[in-house]
Design a binder for these strands. Structure first.
Length: 106
DNA sequence: GCCGTGACGATTC
DNA sequence: CGAATCGCCACGG
């Protein structure tokens, strides 16, 4: 219902709403958009996300709490460092503690 | 309108 | 838990 009704734009709109210190999953965003099976498309939107945007893509992880390809953030462990700086905790497997930081777009 | 692609998800081994 | 497989959906060519 917006001229910019591209699926990507909606994904980005939600990603920006992710509160600091929390993380969300691709599936959660897809679900919020009404397409629970479009998790892959959500991830694609992140990959295609314009760097100029304030898109905190580092706050978006997959359902397993695993982080995205670190190469994209310009280095290995960059995303994890960013999240840690915001108060996000990780388990021994280097995954985000979804039990504590999972945020679902209302 | 079909084909290929992909920062996923869930299931199965 | 880790790896592999199938299924899902939206976008570009």
């Amino acid at each position: 219902m917006r001229t910019t009704d591209s699926f990507f734009e909606r994904v980005w709109a939600i990603a920006v709403k992710v509160p600091r210190g929390k993380v969300t999953t691709y599936g959660a965003i897809a679900r919020a958009l009404g397409s629970p099976g479009a998790a892959r498309t959500v991830g694609w939107a992140m990959r295609a996300a314009p760097a100029r945007s304030r898109l905190p893509c580092h706050r978006v992880v997959n359902a397993t709490g695993d982080l995205s390809p670190q190469d994209i953030f310009g280095g290995t462990g960059v995303q994890q460092s960013l999240l840690k700086s915001e108060g996000v905790t990780f388990n021994a497997q280097g995954r985000v503690d979804l039990k504590r930081h999972l945020w679902i777009p209302a």
